[in-house]
């Protein structure tokens, strides 16, 4: 099994509280991996640590995949609340930001970048919103725009922070369809996920986290009653009863 992302003894702390404690995970190249755990388990922190955005106290993050350009660029889809939706820009411009990593210094996006942006917008069925101010979008539309921006980047690793939060069922289905398509093209996809009821349907691999690593592996092996209880504690049983 090819490994795309590996963390070794990763420890991250904000102030005195460790958010991640001695975490060793291996995320395979192929398939969709779900990062699951209770609130405050360090799920988003794990994504940010992979991106290199949080100071690590100890440990390593190794990326084993690089994209065509040879750089280890990552298609990151932040939580929708992470950005200011009142920022003065249009949907088209936001998606085009995905091409900026390919531009040389001082270069501005040209015809080719515009065409790629248009294609990415079509992929998420947002082409008619291209000229909209981003503040005028609904939650699901915002999520689709973020996804399009990650597509246009043509990364081989995608990290997504709760892309289904605050999104209606129709959009969620559409997103998951797109993700499957991405996976089938051979990309590595990692999602932070909240809803335990859909884990078995959505993910090939699961990382169960509660500050420390609880379990990590293929979904049938990892997403078991014992592991869920280990990660979620007593509440885990109630959550489980809701699934079955």
């Amino acid at each position: 099994m090819d490994i795309a992302i590996e963390t070794q003894q990763l420890t991250v702390a904000y102030g005195a509280q460790p958010a991640l404690w001695n975490v060793n995970v291996e995320i395979p190249s192929l398939g969709i991996t779900g990062i699951i755990g209770p609130n405050g388990a360090g799920k988003s922190t794990l994504l940010k640590a992979i991106l290199g955005n949080v100071p690590r106290l100890s440990g390593h993050v190794t990326l084993h995949r690089t994209d065509e350009a040879g750089s280890a660029a990552i298609g990151y889809v932040p939580q929708r609340s992470a950005v200011d939706w009142d920022f003065p820009t249009t949907v088209f411009d936001l998606v085009m930001m995905g091409t900026y990593g390919r531009l040389r210094w001082f270069q501005r996006p040209g015809k080719r970048e515009r065409e790629q942006t248009r294609q990415a917008l079509q992929q998420v069925h947002m082409e008619e919103f291209a000229d909209r101010q981003i503040g005028e979008l609904s939650g699901g539309q915002q999520q689709r725009v973020f996804l399009a921006r990650a597509f246009v980047q043509r990364a081989s690793i995608y990290l997504m922070d709760e892309p289904f939060a605050g999104v209606d069922a129709k959009t969620e289905n559409m997103l998951i369809e797109i993700l499957h398509q991405l996976r089938d093209e051979g990309n590595t996809i990692v999602l932070v996920h909240h809803d335990l009821t859909t884990v078995k349907d959505y993910f090939d691999h699961v990382v169960l986290l509660n500050r420390k690593l609880v379990a990590c592996g293929t979904t049938p092996q990892t997403f078991t009653a014992e592991n869920i209880e280990l990660a979620y504690g007593v509440a885990g049983k109630q959550l489980l009863s809701r699934i079955s």
Partner: peptide, 8 residues
């Protein structure tokens, strides 16, 4: 954060 993901 996204800019960091782009490798900037």
């Amino acid at each position: 954060e996204y800019a960091a993901g782009l490798g900037l």
